[in-house]
Design a protein around this nucleic acid. Structure first.
Lengths: 132, 132
DNA sequence: TCTTGACTTGGAGTCACCTCCAGGTGATAG
DNA sequence: CTATCACCTGGAGGTGACTCCAAGTCAAGA
C-alpha cells in the first residue's frame, strides 16, 4: 500500500505519516526500487495502533519508547506492559475529569434551557447560578 | 484574593492567570491602588469554570467567545447554550474515543500478562496478536 | 532607610505536534 | 517524448497554550 492509500484509510496525512517515521515512531517503511514507501500489513497495524493511542492523547514520546521496545524483542515485554499500565491509569484519570466536565456542561445547559423556557420562578436563581 | 493565593487554590500558575486575562478569557480583574490584582468571588468562579473546561480540552478560543457573550448580558443566552451543547457533543465523542483506546490498552495488557505468566499454549498467538 | 519579596507590564521564548514547502526523481498517459 | 502526477527529502513554518524574562513599582519588616 502506498502512502496516499494509507493516509486515506486511516485519516492521517501523508506528511504526518512521514513525520512519524522520521521521529522513529514508525520503524522505517520499506521502499520500492524508486524509493516509494510500500506499507506492509504489519506497518498498517502499527499505524492503526498509533492512531488509536494518539487519539486518546498518549504522548508521542511514550509511543516512541514503546515502539522501540517492540523492536528489541521479547525481553522487553515486562517493560512494555508497565508502560501500557501507566498510560491506562493516566487515561482513566483523564476520563474521570472529562466526566466531571461533562456533568458541569449538562448542568449549565439544563439551566439555560429553564431560562429560555421562561420558568420565571427559577430565573433569578438560575441566572445567578450560571452566569457566574 | 491575590494572584498567588488564586494560583495556589486552583493549581494554575500566576503567569497563566495573567495570560488568561490578557487574551480576554478572564475579564479584567480589579486592581488595588498600587495596581495589584484583587480577585473577587465572581472572578474565582470564572477561574474555576475555565479550569474545569480546559482540563477537558475545550479550546481557549471557544471559551473566550463564551466568556465574552456572558459579558454581553442575557440576550446571548441562546447562543451560549448552543456553544455549550456543541462542546458537550464533542466531549462525548472524545470520551467514546478514550473508551475505545482504554479497551485496546486493557486487551494488550491482558495479553502481556498471559505471556509473562508463561501460558505457553497462547504464547505464539499472543505474541503475534500484540507485537504488531 | 534600606532591603526583600510579591506584584506589575509587554514582549520573547518554549514545547508538542504537526504542516508546508522547494527542489528533485520516476512511472505512466497522451 | 514530454507532461503530469504522486512520490521523495530535508528543512522551515505554524498553532495552541502556555512559560519565562527584564525592568519596574510598592508595602512591610530589620
Amino acid at each position: 500500500m502506498k502512502i496516499a492509500e494509507v493516509s486515506e484509510k486511516y485519516g492521517i496525512s501523508p506528511d504526518t505519516l512521514r513525520y512519524y517515521e522520521r521521529i522513529g515512531l514508525l520503524p522505517r517503511v520499506n521502499r520500492s526500487e524508486s524509493g516509494v514507501r510500500e506499507y506492509t500489513e504489519l506497518d498498517l497495524r502499527r499505524v492503526e495502533f498509533i492512531k488509536c493511542m494518539r487519539s486518546a492523547g498518549l504522548p508521542i514520546e511514550v509511543l516512541i519508547d514503546y515502539m522501540q521496545l517492540i523492536e528489541q524483542g521479547d525481553s522487553t515485554i515486562e517493560t512494555r506492559k508497565e508502560i501500557l499500565i501507566e498510560q491506562r491509569d493516566l487515561l482513566l484519570q483523564r476520563m474521570q475529569q472529562l466526566q466531571k466536565t461533562l456533568d458541569v456542561l449538562n448542568h449549565k445547559i439544563e439551566v439555560y434551557e429553564k431560562i429560555i423556557l421562561g420558568k420565571e420562578k427559577q430565573m433569578v436563581q438560575a441566572v445567578v447560578a450560571i452566569e457566574e
